[in-house]
Computed example of a mutant assay.
Amino acid sequence: MLPLDAVPEGRAFLDPSVMCPPVVWLASDEASGVHDERIVAVDFAQWLRDRNPAAG
Protein backbone atom coordinates (compact mmCIF):
# COMPACT_ATOMS: atom_id res chain seq x y z
CA MET A 1 0.00 0.00 0.00
CA LEU A 2 3.07 2.23 0.08
CA PRO A 3 5.22 3.15 -2.88
CA LEU A 4 8.61 1.45 -2.92
CA ASP A 5 10.35 4.83 -2.73
CA ALA A 6 8.69 5.41 0.67
CA VAL A 7 11.17 2.99 2.25
CA PRO A 8 14.49 4.45 3.39
CA GLU A 9 17.48 2.97 1.58
CA GLY A 10 18.75 -0.19 3.23
CA ARG A 11 15.38 -0.94 4.83
CA ALA A 12 12.49 -3.11 3.70
CA PHE A 13 8.82 -3.63 4.42
CA LEU A 14 7.90 -6.57 6.63
CA ASP A 15 6.01 -9.37 4.98
CA PRO A 16 2.31 -8.93 5.82
CA SER A 17 2.14 -12.57 6.96
CA VAL A 18 3.89 -11.48 10.18
CA MET A 19 0.41 -10.39 11.32
CA CYS A 20 -1.17 -13.85 10.98
CA PRO A 21 -0.20 -15.43 14.34
CA PRO A 22 -1.19 -12.43 16.50
CA VAL A 23 -4.46 -11.90 14.63
CA VAL A 24 -5.44 -15.56 14.92
CA TRP A 25 -4.55 -15.58 18.62
CA LEU A 26 -6.44 -12.33 19.29
CA ALA A 27 -9.53 -13.86 17.69
CA SER A 28 -9.29 -16.91 19.99
CA ASP A 29 -10.94 -17.51 23.36
CA GLU A 30 -7.47 -17.52 24.93
CA ALA A 31 -7.19 -13.78 24.27
CA SER A 32 -10.56 -12.89 25.81
CA GLY A 33 -8.94 -11.25 28.85
CA VAL A 34 -6.41 -9.21 26.89
CA HIS A 35 -7.08 -5.47 26.96
CA ASP A 36 -4.94 -2.37 26.51
CA GLU A 37 -1.88 -4.32 25.37
CA ARG A 38 0.62 -3.30 22.74
CA ILE A 39 1.50 -6.40 20.75
CA VAL A 40 4.30 -6.02 18.23
CA ALA A 41 3.79 -8.66 15.55
CA VAL A 42 7.48 -9.44 15.06
CA ASP A 43 7.81 -9.95 18.84
CA PHE A 44 4.54 -11.83 19.29
CA ALA A 45 6.00 -15.29 20.03
CA GLN A 46 8.19 -13.88 22.81
CA TRP A 47 5.32 -11.73 24.13
CA LEU A 48 3.10 -14.80 24.32
CA ARG A 49 5.81 -16.86 26.08
CA ASP A 50 6.37 -14.03 28.58
CA ARG A 51 2.64 -13.81 29.21
CA ASN A 52 2.34 -17.52 30.01
CA PRO A 53 5.76 -19.04 30.83
CA ALA A 54 4.16 -22.31 32.02
CA ALA A 55 2.86 -22.96 28.49
CA GLY A 56 6.41 -23.24 27.26
Rank of each mutant, 00 (worst) to 15 (best):
F13G: 13
C20T: 10
A6Y: 01
A6T: 15
R11M: 13
R49C: 04
P21K: 10
V34N: 02
P22A: 15
R11G: 05
W47G: 00
A12H: 01
V23K: 15
E37S: 09
W25D: 05
E9G: 05
F13C: 14
R38M: 10
W25F: 15
P53A: 06
M1W: 07
P8L: 14
L48K: 02
N52Y: 14
V40T: 04
R51M: 13
V18T: 05
V7H: 00
P53C: 11
I39L: 01
A45C: 07
M19G: 05
R49V: 09
P16Y: 04
L26Y: 03
H35A: 09
P21M: 15
F44C: 00
D29W: 02
S17R: 09
P53N: 06
A55F: 10
E30V: 06
P16S: 08
L2V: 15
E37Y: 03
P3A: 06
V42F: 13
P16N: 08
Q46D: 10
G33P: 01
P8K: 15
W47H: 10
R38S: 07
V42A: 11
S28D: 11
A27N: 09
R49N: 04
L4I: 14
E37Q: 11
L26C: 14
V7Q: 02
D15C: 08
H35D: 01
D50V: 15
A55V: 01
S17N: 01
A45N: 08
P22N: 03
V23L: 12
A45R: 06
R51N: 09
L48W: 09
D15S: 08
A12D: 13
L4Q: 06
C20H: 12
D36P: 01
G10C: 00
D29K: 11
P21V: 12
V18R: 02
A54H: 02
V40F: 15
W25R: 05
A12I: 11
R38P: 03
P8R: 11
L2G: 07
H35P: 04
S32D: 04
A31N: 00
P21T: 12
R49E: 11
D50T: 14
L14R: 07
C20V: 09
V7G: 02
